[in-house]
Every structure is written in structure tokens, then in C-alpha cells.
Nucleic acid binder design. Structure first.
Length: 224
DNA sequence: GCATTAACCACAG
DNA sequence: CTGTGGTTAATGC
């Protein structure tokens, strides 16, 4: 089987693997499809695989003292859960599919082999983790210092500019989940979206969003 | 004090 | 699951 060799959504890191390593990957990698709303891995469960999202959207979320907090929305192709798989025996957070998702489970021992033996692979992984960490820092300040409308504006811009690359899209989240993502109550999210709609900043119909005034939304996000 | 912000509650589609 | 209105607590002027 050449499933890994000819994979259409291979990671930058996996592109650095040599022939024999690709073969090793094929022997230790299991591909699974998830429907929308299924748990890919669960907080507090034992984990011995690195997850690679080939296609689809996933929410990464952690239980807070009060409510769930969505740490990030991940879009394939991307690795998921490297920190929690390498850094602890159990998952420190959960991942749930928001769309149809196609993922690969890579055995942690194989993954470790690659890191130890292939410096180019390791470098790509580190690069990825660094970028992730930097974006966490930014999200962290934003989350803590911006007002609720600013956080919602940022979330909408994130979906438009980074996930869908379009001004019109369907939110993959319920109001309550959008609250978990932006650190708002679901009621606040409803109200803020209704206001944006009324002010002609967006056009809202259920989960359907059309961004009308992109620059104003950006301004709201910037000012917080 | 008074205004603003945002969470919580309750109830209705 | 969503939207809305009333209430409430914290914060700022």
C-alpha cells in the first residue's frame, strides 16, 4: 500500500521523510474518518498517537472550572495534539470534529523515530510548534484584554480570512460554542451578532454569515 | 450616585 | 438551539 507515499495532504514535515521512513509510517499509521460532532480524542484519556488531520475542521477544547473553552479551531492538513501526546500520558484537552474529518493516527514511537533520525523532519515539527505558540500568545492577550464585541469580531474575521477565505460562510459552531471560543456567554454572542447585523456590518441568517463591512469589523476587533 | 458592560435566569419560539 | 427581556454585580466617571 502506498497510501502515505501518495497522500494528497502530506505535511511539510512528512515531505522530508525518506523512502524507508515513509514505509515505516505506512505500517504504523491508521486512517479514520469522522462525521460531524464526533470526538477524535478525549481529555483525560490515555493517548499514544499523534493525530494528523488530513481534511476537515476540528475544535480543540479544554474543560474549564466553569465552562468549556475552545482553544482553537484547526483546519486540515495539520498535526494535532503533539504537545499533549508527547508532554503527558493523558490528553490535556479534547478534539471534536466540526465537519467530516479525515485523520491519521500515527504511533508515537514511529513519530519519535523520525524526530530522532531525521533532523529536517524534526525542524519542520519544531517550526510548526513555534508558530502555534506565538499565535497562542496573541490570542491570550486578545482574550484577556478585549471587550466581548472585539472578541466576536476577531472570531468572525478568523473564519473569513483564515478558514474559509471568503466573506460569506456558514459558521461551523453553535452560538454556545462561539461563546466557548470567544469567552462570552451564549446570550452575549447572540446579542453581539444581532447588533452587527443591525449595524450592517454583517448579514446574519442563522449560522450563515456574510461580512459586509470588513474594515469596520477589523476596527472593532482592533479596538477591542 | 449614575451609566455601562456582560453574566445569569427565565421563558418563548 | 436561539433570541429577548429583566435582573444583578462590577467598574468607571
Amino acid at each position: 500500500m502506498d497510501i502515505c507515499k501518495h497522500c494528497q495532504s502530506k505535511s511539510l514535515a512528512a515531505n522530508k521523510l525518506v523512502e524507508s521512513e515513509i514505509e515505516e509510517l505506512e505500517h504504523s499509521c491508521v486512517s479514520v474518518d469522522f462525521l460531524q460532532g464526533e470526538i477524535i480524542f478525549k481529555q483525560d484519556a490515555l493517548s499514544s498517537n499523534i493525530i494528523y488531520i488530513r481534511t476537515g475542521l476540528v475544535k480543540v477544547h479544554i474543560k474549564g472550572p466553569d465552562r468549556d473553552q475552545i482553544l482553537k479551531i484547526a483546519k486540515g492538513p495539520t498535526y494535532l495534539g503533539i504537545p499533549t501526546t508527547l508532554g503527558d500520558k493523558v490528553n490535556n484537552y479534547s478534539a471534536t470534529s466540526l465537519t467530516h474529518v479525515s485523520v491519521c493516527f500515527v504511533d508515537i514511537r514511529t513519530f519519535r523515530h523520525f524526530i530522532e533520525n531525521n533532523s529536517e523532519f524534526a525542524y519542520e515539527i519544531i517550526l510548526d510548534l513555534c508558530k502555534e505558540e506565538l499565535s497562542y500568545y496573541h490570542r491570550c492577550v486578545n482574550q484577556l484584554q478585549k471587550h466581548s464585541a472585539g472578541r466576536v469580531a476577531d472570531a468572525l474575521l478568523f473564519f473569513a480570512d483564515e478558514i474559509y477565505l471568503s466573506k460569506t460562510f456558514n459558521l461551523p459552531l453553535s452560538r454556545s460554542e462561539l461563546g466557548d471560543l470567544t469567552g462570552n456567554s451564549r446570550e452575549s454572542v447572540s446579542r453581539i451578532l444581532a447588533e452587527f447585523n443591525q449595524q450592517q456590518i454583517i448579514q446574519l441568517k442563522g449560522r450563515g454569515i456574510a461580512i459586509i463591512n470588513h474594515s469596520l469589523l477589523k476596527e472593532i476587533g482592533k479596538k477591542g
